[in-house]
Amino acid sequence: MLPVAITGVGVVAASVTTSAELAGVPGAGRWLVGVDGRLDLSGHLDALQLRSFDRASQLAVVAAKLALEDAGGWPGAPSSLGVCLGNTHGCLEAQIALDRAILTEGPQAVSGTLFPYGAFNAAAANVAIVLHARGANLTFATGAAAGTDACAEAARQLQDGCVTCMLGGGVEAPGDAAVLLLESRDAADGRGARTRGMIAGAASRVADDDSRAGFERAAAWSARSALEEAGIVAGDVRLVVGEVELLAKTFDGRSVPTISAESTFGEAPSASGAFQVVLAVLSLRSPAERGPVLCLSRTPEGIVSVIVVTP
């Protein structure tokens, strides 16, 4: 993977445990954080979007707009901007509600307006519609790994060369989303954009079984592959975001500082991988702690995904 620059960060969170330290400080990106758990999106969406978008779409659109604002806007052509989101559960509410309408009121009760929200990709599509992003549009539904997988795929889309800029991240209704603006290092430097960090490697594996050992093997393989792709070794890693316990063999007993997205943002499965990358970017603001960050997501269903963020 070519190192891909992170030039914008947009965060929407119903609540964070350390908002005073994170939100609003230079280099942290643009954040919208709920007050007493209440998240007011009305300043960021128009009346139609507030009325017609599902919650996942609203959150994703606001996070994407914040990421673009943070990056100073996107001056490129619409066809050169793509979207890749993790969104596993965002459509479930619509699926249940639409089907219950069929059961209780008959097939004619299905709302033609709501029907497309039964598909997983509605949130990513609405981001594209609002931002006129006509590049690749992808959605991953890999649960707690979806945000990680989406950020990694966004970076890989840039390598294909069909887009010059990607929005990658994850969304979890009712209150969480994180979106990053990614572009090639050359493109970022060319337009004088501030680079917050680089996505340098990524890998994912399904544990062969649900045993602890199975997850450890999958984590070790994913970490090794992602680090190889990034061109660094485990000894270079300064910080792990996620379950470092799965990586005992990777670090050969070395103690590595660790944080978790859950302790900051709470449980937000499809957004958590993107939150991890946000925390990685934040850690890079400290000159003393600048160094590669390994983010690890694990799903109960068996996926272990890793992404490596470097200064």
């Binding site: 598909a119 997983f120 990709n121 549009n137 992808l138 959605t139 991953f140 539904a141 890999t142 997988d149 795929e153 890998a203 994912s204 594996r205 399904v206 062969d208 393989w221 996926i303």
Partner: peptide, 11 residues
């Protein structure tokens, strides 16, 4: 065995 797997959704 030892597989990577993603589900991708674009309708």
């Amino acid at each position: 065995v030892g597989a990577s797997a993603v589900s991708v959704h674009a309708a």
